[in-house]
Amino acid sequence: MTDDVDEGGEAGSVDHTDRPAPSTPKPVVVVVEPETPGNIGTIARAMKNFGLSELKLVNPPDLDPDGEAYGFAGHAREDVLPNAEEVTFEEVVENYYTVGTTAITGEDDRRHERFPFKTPVELRESLRTVAAPTALVFGREGRGLNNDELSRIDEVCSIPAADDYPVLNLGQAATVLLYELRELTVSETQLPDVSVTRAEEADIEQFHEFFEAFLAATGERSHRRERNALLMRRLLGRAHPTDREIHSLLGTFRKANAKLEHADFLAAKYDEPLYSRD
């Protein structure tokens, strides 16, 4: 892994929307012999983003409060990073259900240390059933976890990437994995509720009546009216319009139909030619 890490600004809203509460213990994050303080800061920031707080470091470099780690940590400099605990690899495997991460996987079951492995999404579903203290273990920037360490890990996770360059930067890999596990670690996010309540069927049916009247008033031929009315039904069937959306459309077509009827009335009254029906 390379250690080219970019420092970014804070982003995102502070509004929160309720989500189902996580039902499994939140994992701790372990980084084994990290070489670059900036990567530690990036991981701490990702932990803060996705609801994790316990960071454990195996043989880390010095973390200067005025240095790169704290500069890259964002608001995690206030809690996650200063509370990071230095531990040994032995302590991790003895006290936690462990998930090791690797970019290089075994191609078959002859590579027992790295096979089988799970993708982050598969790991998320697997951890739903693990009611035990869990540690997500990341390796060194250049070499990752070695085979001896992986042989002592309970599960192995790998992020799918391009075959010709599957190795992610350490901070990036941690961010991707923690993002995919967010359903287990974050009970609410800044995103609004995306559920849609479909408008009343009576209102939707009234819209279809208005639309068919509109097609008739514009002079559409019978077969075209039937086809376009059917296409509109299919479109709204997929779209699931809300009350606000369907009532806005009802108002628009009500006015359009009234104006078309008035145009026909004036044309007949003053013996004017109707607009083109072609």
Rank of each mutant, 00 (worst) to 15 (best):
L215T: 03
L235Y: 12
H223I: 03
N146Y: 11
V121M: 07
G139Y: 08
V130S: 02
R198W: 02
S151F: 09
L250Y: 01
F211V: 08
E183W: 02
L123N: 04
Q190E: 14
A162E: 15
P133H: 02
P160Q: 12
S195I: 00
I246F: 10
R128H: 13
S151N: 12
D243W: 03
A229S: 15
N146P: 01
G142S: 12
L191D: 12
R198E: 15
T197E: 15
F138I: 09
P133Q: 08
R227Q: 14
L184I: 05
G171C: 06
D163M: 03
V194K: 09
L177T: 07
E205G: 01
A173V: 05
E183I: 01
N146S: 04
A131T: 09
L150G: 02
A174L: 10
D193Y: 05
V194Q: 13
V167Y: 04
L168I: 05
A199N: 04
V194S: 12
L250H: 10
I204W: 03
E212Q: 12
L150Y: 12
I204E: 09
P241A: 08
G251E: 12
R227H: 14
L215Y: 04
A216N: 11
E188A: 15
T129F: 11
E180C: 03
A229H: 11
S151E: 13
A199K: 09
H223C: 00
V121F: 05
T134W: 07
Q172S: 13
F210D: 14
L150S: 03
A199I: 09
P241T: 05
E226F: 01
I159M: 08
R227E: 14
E201I: 03
G171K: 03
S222K: 04
Q190M: 10
A199F: 07
F211G: 01
L170Y: 10
Q206H: 15
R233A: 06
V167Q: 11
S195Y: 03
A216Q: 11
T175I: 01
L145I: 09
F210L: 15
V196F: 06
R124E: 05
Q190G: 13
G144E: 09
D148Q: 08
R244P: 00
L215R: 02
E149T: 11
V121I: 14
R198K: 14
I246A: 02
A229N: 06
E245S: 12
G237D: 15
H208C: 05
R124H: 10
L250E: 03
V156M: 06
I204H: 02
H208R: 11
I159K: 04
G144H: 06
L136Y: 04
L249M: 15
P133K: 10
R143T: 09
G219C: 08
G171Y: 08
L250F: 03
P166C: 05
V156P: 01
L184K: 05
